Simulated assay, not measured.
Amino acid sequence: MASLLRRLARPAVLIPLGVPVGLYTFAKLNPDAASAYYKRGFAWACARSTESNNKKLQELKQDMFTGLKEQDGGSSSLQVLEIGAGSGANFKYFPPGTSVIAVDPNPHFDQYLKENSDEYPEVKVTKFVVAGAEDMADVAEGSVDAVVCTLVLCSVHDVDAVLGEVKRVLKPGGKFYFLEHVRHPTQAWVQSLQDILTPVFRVLSDGCQPNRETWKHVDSAGFSDVQYKIEGNLRPKVIMQILYGTATK
């Protein structure tokens, strides 16, 4: 009986492990083909997980976006640029009347963004820019009241370049609202596991690097005021060290 159970247990372990390993191998050997399929699939997966992700991060987002509502002050004329807008997961936290410039390098998010816009008609998407956040030339300097970025800086090519663009497009006194999963600030075993998993995450999760010390980049970006917290009580611990806060131009 014990021998039979061992034989049955093997495929139960090997099959789930084989899926990510197979996808990783395919992506490494066929990067162009993988990218064509992946971008479409990634947009679909993110759109379908919007509700569950918001539920997990609900308290942190409510805390962070309180400042956005205070910044609006009931004027219903807030101009927001959202980096990595994806399917519009943050629209539920924006004040009514907010106008949004959505920036995302994945063009397949456009259809899901429209679906979420229909669900939150009080938030108006005025422009969808297919671009990386390192160069948002289509957005004028000093043109937006706030920039929003959630779970994006882990996957950009150059964090410092992105923060430079954030400062450029913000009006004087404008605010940058960010929420990112980052490297564990103290626990060595978590840091080691994050380092081991990072190459796999980069391939399977659109360039995500869970071992980035993003707070150091924000601290050195030259904002006039920076305030943030790191929440480490979410699970799984290896990817849910959440940095969230605001930075003022």
Rank of each mutant, 00 (worst) to 15 (best):
T126L: 01
M136F: 08
V19I: 14
N30P: 00
H181R: 04
E82G: 04
K39C: 06
G164E: 11
D104L: 03
H181K: 05
W189I: 07
F128P: 00
Q62C: 11
S224T: 09
V182F: 02
S99H: 13
R168H: 00
A27I: 03
P105V: 13
E59C: 02
E165A: 04
V80F: 10
L17R: 12
F178N: 01
A9Y: 14
P172F: 02
E122S: 15
G174E: 05
K55T: 13
G245P: 04
A221M: 15
K229D: 12
G173S: 10
I101S: 03
F109P: 06
G22C: 10
T198R: 11
K55F: 13
A9H: 11
M64V: 04
G97K: 09
P105C: 08
R48L: 05
D135I: 15
H217G: 13
R7Q: 07
D104Y: 07
D195P: 11
P31K: 08
N211F: 10
R235K: 13
P95Y: 01
P107Q: 00
Q241G: 02
A12T: 12
A140D: 13
S35I: 01
E122T: 15
D63E: 14
A188S: 11
P105R: 08
N53M: 14
T66M: 07
E115Y: 07
L23E: 03
L8A: 12
K56L: 12
A247G: 05
H108R: 09
V21W: 08
H108A: 07
N54K: 13
G142A: 13
P199N: 13
E165M: 05
V147H: 08
E59D: 11
A133P: 13
V100T: 05
E141G: 03
L78K: 01
Q187V: 10
S99R: 14
D195T: 15
Y24M: 06
A89C: 14
E180W: 00
V129Y: 13
K39Q: 14
Q62T: 13
A27H: 03
H181W: 03
A34K: 03
E180Y: 00
T25Q: 05
L234E: 05
I230C: 11
N116M: 12
F176G: 01
A221E: 14
P121F: 12
G84C: 10
K229C: 07
V159Y: 01
S220M: 14
M240I: 00
D138H: 05
L17E: 08
H217R: 15
N53W: 10
D206I: 05
I83Q: 03
V144L: 09
K175C: 06
G142M: 04
L68H: 03
Q241H: 05
G245N: 04
H184V: 05
K61D: 01
A89H: 09
W215E: 12
S99A: 12
Q58H: 10
K216R: 15
L8Q: 12
L163A: 08
G86N: 02
E119L: 15
F42H: 07
Q71H: 05
R7N: 04
V103N: 02
A9D: 14
T186L: 02
F176S: 01
R183K: 11
